[in-house]
Amino acid sequence: MIKVLLVDDHAVVRMGLNLLLDSQENMVVVGEASEGEEAIEKAQQLQPDVILMDLSMPHGKDGLTATSELKKLLPETFILILTMHDDEEYLFRAIQTGASGCVLKSAPHSELISAIQSVSTGNAYLHPSATKKLMEEYLGSVKNNGSDLFEILSEREKEILTLIAKGYANREIGEKLIISVKTVETHKSNLMEKLQMRTRPELVDYALKKGLLGYGI
């Protein structure tokens, strides 16, 4: 059985969720709380598998603060945020605090049940629009600064990228690093694929922007 703790400041909402979850064969509601501080106390007492946490609770401690504290106290308990906000700001903050996922209050009952089952096994769950927003944010960040892509380059690829920026030809790079021209070309092809670039000038421009003339060799 998946033991669930409900946290929401609206008694009617908690009642509806209680009826829904208790009707499932593999779920049981072990307790309820109306604000964050109460949720922290009850979670420590009841040791639930999943906490269904309302994001916005105007009275007492809010859902994000409670989630952050609970993940420190009960790292093995999974927290699923229930929110009416389809906004990436809330989504990112929820994930940063340690939540395993987010479900919209407007989502179908079947989606909520699936989300609870998913996070109870250690998986993350995001509603479809949230997944799209995360991908757009990540790709936008990569496009703007490329910092994440640079970190996936191997040390050898960084060396070769630096030498390309300094104007060395493939043969000269091979002689300097004591590797074959074919190996240089392979590394160059790999780093271009990782950086999503097609030409040498693009590599040079990228290396200059990353300050690689002062890197390594």
Rank of each mutant, 00 (worst) to 15 (best):
L6H: 03
V13Y: 00
V13M: 01
G16R: 04
N18G: 01
N18L: 02
L19F: 06
L20M: 08
L21P: 00
Q24A: 04
V30N: 04
V30C: 01
V30T: 02
S34R: 01
E38H: 01
E38K: 04
E41W: 02
K42M: 13
K42V: 05
A43V: 10
A43I: 10
L52R: 13
D54M: 02
M57V: 07
M57K: 14
K61I: 11
D62N: 15
D62T: 13
T65G: 07
A66P: 07
A66N: 05
T67L: 05
T67D: 12
L70D: 10
K71H: 05
E76I: 01
E76D: 14
L80R: 09
L80D: 09
M84F: 09
D86P: 01
D87F: 05
D87Y: 09
E88F: 11
L91M: 03
R93N: 09
G101K: 03
V103L: 00
L104S: 09
P108M: 03
S110V: 15
E111C: 03
I116M: 06
A130D: 02
L134C: 00
E136D: 15
E137D: 10
L139Q: 12
F150H: 10
F150A: 11
E155P: 10
R156P: 09
L163I: 10
A165N: 09
A165V: 08
A165S: 14
K166E: 09
E175W: 02
E175A: 12
L177N: 03
T183W: 06
T186G: 05
H187M: 06
S189W: 05
N190R: 15
L191I: 15
K194C: 12
Q196P: 00
T199L: 15
R200M: 15
E202L: 03
A207E: 08
A207Y: 07
K209E: 08
K209G: 04
K210A: 11
L212Y: 14
Y215W: 12
Y215R: 14
G216E: 11
